[in-house]
C-alpha cells in the first residue's frame, strides 16, 4: 500500500471506532487544532510526552500560546515525581505512537519512561502524535516490537462499553475521546 492509501485506510477505520484523525503538513496547523480542542472541551491541564522533535515543538508552542498548565513527562522524570499523582487532574494526555495500524485504525504504544502507560489511560482525552512513516498495514507488522518491549498497548478508539442493554457508551475507565494526529510532510 502507498503512504496515501495507508493514511486513507487508517482514517476510514478509526472513524468506524469513534476515534478521530487529522493529517497535518506542519506543526503550526496542529497547534491551532489543539487550541480549539482545548477551548471546546475546557481542558485545564495537559501532560505531554516530549521526547521527540514533533512533540517537543508542540509542547513549546503550547506553552507559549496558552496559559494552561502544561507539563512534559521529562520534567516529571527529572523531579522524580510519581506519574500517578501528577496525572490525577490532567484532562488531556498527549502521547507519541510507535505505530499506527491501517487495517484496524489502531495506535500501538510501547511503554517507556517517556510514554508511561497511564498517560494514554487516566486523562479524559488522549491525543496521539505520529508521522505518516509510522503507519503499518497490519498488527502483524509490529510483531518484533511486541516481542521485545516490556509491554505494548494496542489502542483502537476511545474506551467503550455496551454492558447495559448493549447500548454503546464511549468513555468508561479510559479516555472519552481519542484523536490521532498524523504529520505528513
Amino acid at each position: 500500500m502507498s503512504k496515501d492509501n495507508l493514511i486513507e485506510r487508517f482514517n476510514k477505520e478509526i472513524i468506524k471506532v469513534n476515534g478521530e484523525c487529522f493529517v497535518f503538513k506542519n506543526i503550526d496547523d496542529s497547534i491551532t487544532q489543539i487550541q480549539s480542542f482545548i477551548e471546546k472541551e475546557k481542558i485545564k491541564k495537559i501532560l505531554i510526552n516530549d521526547k521527540n522533535e514533533i512533540s517537543r515543538s508542540i509542547y513549546v508552542n503550547l506553552k507559549r500560546t496558552t496559559d494552561l498548565i502544561i507539563q512534559a513527562v521529562s520534567e516529571i522524570n527529572i523531579k522524580n515525581k510519581d506519574i500517578k499523582e501528577e496525572l490525577k487532574d490532567v484532562d488531556l494526555g498527549i502521547s507519541y505512537a510507535n505505530f499506527l495500524v491501517a487495517d484496524t485504525g489502531s495506535v500501538v504504544l510501547t511503554s517507556s519512561e517517556d510514554e508511561p502507560r497511564l498517560l494514554s489511560l487516566l486523562p479524559e482525552f488522549n491525543i496521539v502524535l505520529s508521522t505518516s512513516n509510522q503507519i503499518i498495514e497490519k498488527l502483524e507488522d509490529a510483531i518484533d516490537v511486541i516481542k521485545t518491549e516490556k509491554s505494548v498497548t494496542v489502542i483502537t478508539g476511545p474506551s467503550r462499553t455496551a454492558d447495559i442493554e448493549k447500548v454503546l457508551i464511549t468513555g468508561v475507565h479510559g479516555p472519552k475521546k481519542l484523536i490521532v494526529f498524523i504529520f505528513d510532510k
Binding site: S106, E149, V152, T153, T156, G157, P158, S159
Partner: peptide, 10 residues
C-alpha cells in the same frame, strides 16, 4: 474487529 485495548505484557 479488534477491542479498544489489547495489552501485551512481557
Amino acid at each position: 474487529k479488534i477491542t479498544s485495548y489489547v495489552s501485551f505484557i512481557n
